[in-house]
Design a protein around this nucleic acid. Structure first.
Lengths: 146, 146
DNA sequence: CGTTGTTAGTTACAAAACCAACAGTTAACA
DNA sequence: TGTTAACTGTTGGTTTTGTAACTAACAACG
């Protein structure tokens, strides 16, 4: 029984994107995990603060599309490790501004350099035009609707 | 403090791939979840059996790169729902052949058609050449090393 | 003011993933 | 053969995530 079917799983875009994403994250994950004991959510928050500077959890959520509970937990961990400080907005006391400490900034810069090198290494597997097109398509796919 | 930095997170490939993968999985996830109460691991196992026919958990692991515990649990769920049957190899009693039941096959075909339509919908956002290149690059990235 | 609704962020509980140790079976080879 | 190593698949305990309800603060409008 069980008539084999010719659906091409290896080319099904959601599956393929997942496989590529997982594979391409592996080496970088190893670094932020082994070197700083971080989770994916944590380096993402760290990077947002490192790149854009002082911002609130809400703003991180808008940029990263992470759910607020993930952010809340990542922020708690980073604060515990003294990688960031929290500071309530006096005008609107629901808001809390997050900012990297010098230690957090050092960790960010270290990982940023690793990320840059790793990205180049991946990009080097293709021509410049190809990589540019890949990034453009991925941005569009990531962008959601339409 | 907190000097803003110009690292381009939105173009960092592992990040970008994850965002694209997540976004592109959403609609399809909704279908297999709402319609069959399945998890990602479960539809993957279902598809492997639907496409390649009778095979063992080990073989599914090799093709999908899923860890054996995920497969074991997905198989248990699918067996419980009567979507597949298990049959020990008499020659090597460590092996167990998995095979879709008629109900499992129906579910597979239903989801496969959804997947095909969904894939076309995504592909339609680009030219044929672009999509072909995208798939090729993703396959290479997914393929691991080098 | 005061009631109702909205927002930022946290917490509690359940679901799922991860990892390591396990049972049962087969292979290797002294 | 007998003992050890290797392999397939499962289970247990912990970590991480997801979902929903919650607190505290502000806004809107009578």
């Amino acid at each position: 029984m069980s008539i084999p079917d010719d659906f091409d799983l290896q080319n099904f875009l959601p599956y393929l994107l997942n496989q590529a994403a997982e594979e391409s994250s592996l080496s970088f994950q190893k670094v932020y995990k082994d070197r700083y004991g971080m989770l994916r959510t944590e380096w993402r928050v760290l990077f947002h603060l490192g790149i854009y500077g002082r911002m609130t959890a809400k703003q991180i959520g808008e940029r990263s599309k992470m759910h607020k509970t993930k952010i809340s937990r990542a922020v708690a961990k980073l604060a515990e490790r003294r990688f960031l400080t929290r500071q309530k907005d006096e005008a609107d006391r629901r808001l809390e501004y997050l900012e990297l400490t010098p230690a957090g900034l050092r960790a960010y810069r270290d990982l940023r350099d690793v990320a840059r090198a790793y990205d180049s290494q991946i990009a080097a597997r293709f021509s410049e035009d190809e990589v540019a097109l890949l990034r453009r398509m991925l941005r569009q796919l990531a962008g959601g609707a339409r």
